[in-house]
Structures are given as structure tokens and as C-alpha cells.
Design a protein around this nucleic acid. Structure first.
Lengths: 196, 196
DNA sequence: GTTAGCATGTAAGGAGTTACATGATTTT
DNA sequence: AAAATCATGTAACTCCTTACATGCTAAC
């Protein structure tokens, strides 16, 4: 049941697995990663942290982790339950995992999962994008073509972007399959595009 | 005061300027354009249409526009007030106009505005993306570099995508400036990328 | 005749933004 | 001493999605 809101939770758990952090720092990092557009406000982050505290997924880091006195800040760390929840969420491969934001977060923490999961996520995302492409192209074929140059250019650019994303995913999938050797990646490179 | 919710309104007004349409048809077209990800649900569209009806931006198309009987459907068309509102919204160039969805909609209906506005929107969007790029690169330089390969790959891909978008915008800006001649566009083309 | 798609809506609820509120610390 | 930015939070509100509810029409 990976709902939309679990995305922040997943990201926070993932980041805290890289070391204890306080809210402000988390927000900065979050904005850097899911940052190509969306900016997460304090009004979402802090309530989310409180909720995670209540659910015992994270806890305040007590004791003097910081040398000497520091400014007022609450440093969080994951609990054992948080670690379990993180693993559970990461291996929960479903439609929600192919969505833009959710996919990015999962990818960012791919090192925490095994190859089987990684492939399922990458392939799932790829077919979802491919479906979109097909659907749009099919519907555009049905409707009488638009003549507006800007509409046409926007559409061309959109299709191109998605196609690039699909190629990127294909390369990654090949890389995953080709494990240690570089061969698969190089092979994928040549099939990418013919020279103009 | 272009808020987020005005995006649907802008899109609906724009589409209805291309001809009268009913809600179901509007949704299909909307999903095709702002469609690379987001899908607009009926639960957002129909209430939005009702609201626009109340504000006299659109009206039900009465009379027999359709030859002979058809199935139950409500065909909308823009009112005079709606046309004014559309012009007003389109020329309202502010931060909201550089946002992903809002930008796409504006671009889609660029033919309805003059070059001055188009350039302001394109340049605004470009500097916004450039700022993002700079900010991210600056902050990444400050923080000690991450070593995780997936995190690094995601970041590389993100930077590349935004850079492509910036180049696309630059080409469009040049094309706008080069008005009737193809020279500017062709010139921009060569600066795009060197051959591998 | 029954499935698939057309067509319109409503109610409840979630997720996140905006705006507000506060204060410490570092830099200029 | 002022400005920037670090740091944490709350309340109201908006937008939108999900799920539900209904019924027609075309195709198989």
C-alpha cells in the first residue's frame, strides 16, 4: 500500500541510514535530490518527522554526539523498527514505485537493495514510460493533427524527453544484467542511435 | 496573483478557444498535454468547470450545434469575459509562469500572445532552471562528495536533463529573436553539441 | 446480451503549501 | 549593530485524488 505520502518517509529513512541528521539538514538534502522542481516546505517536513517519531521509526539522538555545546537542534537517527520499515518499503515493488518522485527516491537508495528489486523497479518504470508514449502517439494519430507550431514543438520535445529517459533506463538495465563486465553497457551504447 | 489552481483554468480557456468541447473531451486533451506524468481526475475537472460557469468565463453551448440527436453531454464555449480573462492570464508574467506545469500550458498557447511576452516567459524559465543548476552545483561542492554510485548517477542524469532543457529554451529564444529568417535557429543548432 | 468505453458528477479525505511565529548564531 | 541564515514549529487553507454513484451507447 505504498501511498503518495510514504515518499517523504522513505527518503527520510534512507538519508538517516547515511548518518544522524537534524530537520533543517534533512530538508536541504531532500531538496537537492527530489529537487528538480519541487521544494519541500517545513510545513510538510516537521509534521512528518513528528509522525515518524510517534511510530518509533526514528528517535532523537541523545548524549553528546556533538563535541562541546551547539545550537538548539534535534538530531534524529533511525530505530531498529525504522530500518525494518525502510527495507520493507524498498522491496515493495508496485505501481507507486514507477512514479516520478517515488522512483527517484528508490533509485537514490538502490545500494540498499538487491539486484532483483532494482531490475523490477527499472523495468517497471521503463514500461510505464513506454505505455505513456504509445498512448499519446495512438491518441494523436486518432485526433486530426494540430497545426499550431508551438503545440507541435512542445509535443515533439516531450516525446524526445521521454524517449531519452527510456534509453537511460535501458542502459541501466543492461548495466545491472552485465554485472561486473563493461561489455553490456558498451553494447547498449552502440544500439542507442545510429550516426546521423 | 497567478496561483497554482489557475493552471487548469488557463488550460481550459485555451482549449475552448480552439472550439467548443465537453468535459470528457477536455480531460482527454488536458491529459495529453500536461500528460507526461500527471493525470487530471474528473474530481478536479468537473468542479473546476462548474466554478468557471459560475464566474461566467464559460457557458453551455445551446442550440443544435450537433446534427441530429446525440448522447447526454454538456458542450462548453468561452464567453467574452472568458476571452478577456485568458488574455489577462497569458500576459501575467511572473514566477508562477516558470513553473513546470504552468510553463507548459503557456507555451502550448503561445500563438495567442505576442513575441514580447513569449520572450519574457522563455527567458524567465531559462534563468530559473539555470539558478537551480547553480544552486545544486554550489551545494554539492560544499558538502563532502557522496560516493554512492546510484546517487551519483541520478545526480548526473538530473543535471544533464536540466542542461538539455536550458539548451532547448536557448534555441527557442534565438528562434523568436531571429523572427523570419532561419539563420538564428541554424546557428543555435551548431552550438548545441560538437560531434563525438 | 454483455463488455467496454462514453459521460457526468459528489463526498471524504490526504498531502503539502503559505503564512505566521519565534529565537539563536554566524557573518559582515 | 545589522543582516543573513540556521533552526523549529503551527494553523488555515487549497488543491487534488480516491472512491463512489449513475446511466447511456457502441461494439462484439
Amino acid at each position: 500500500m505504498a501511498r503518495r505520502g510514504d515518499t517523504i518517509e522513505l527518503a527520510v529513512l534512507g538519508l538517516l541510514h547515511e548518518g544522524p541528521m537534524h530537520g533543517y539538514e534533512l530538508r536541504k538534502r531532500l531538496n537537492l535530490m527530489l529537487g528538480w522542481g519541487r521544494i519541500l516546505s517545513y510545513g510538510s517536513l516537521y509534521p512528518a518527522l513528528k509522525k515518524m517519531l510517534r511510530n518509533n521509526l526514528i528517535e532523537e539522538l541523545t548524549g553528546s554526539a556533538q563535541p562541546t555545546s551547539r545550537r538548539q537542534r534535534i538530531v534524529y537517527q533511525v530505530t531498529e523498527k525504522g530500518t525494518e520499515e525502510f527495507s520493507r518499503l524498498m522491496s515493495e515493488v508496485g505501481p507507486a514505485a514507477w512514479e516520478d518522485d517515488n522512483f527517484d527516491i528508490r533509485f537514490r537508495f538502490f545500494s540498499s537493495t538487491d539486484m532483483e528489486i532494482r531490475l523490477r523497479v527499472l523495468e517497471g518504470r521503463r514500461s510505464r514510460l513506454q505505455e505513456r508514449l504509445d498512448r499519446v502517439q495512438r491518441e494523436l494519430a486518432m485526433t486530426q493533427r494540430e497545426v499550431d507550431r508551438y503545440a507541435a514543438e512542445l509535443e515533439r520535445h516531450g516525446v524526445e524527453s521521454v524517449e531519452r529517459e527510456v534509453r537511460w533506463l535501458s542502459d541501466l538495465i543492461n548495466a545491472e544484467r552485465g554485472t561486473d563486465t563493461k561489455t553490456a553497457a558498451a553494447e547498449a551504447e552502440t544500439t542507442k542511435e545510429g550516426l546521423p
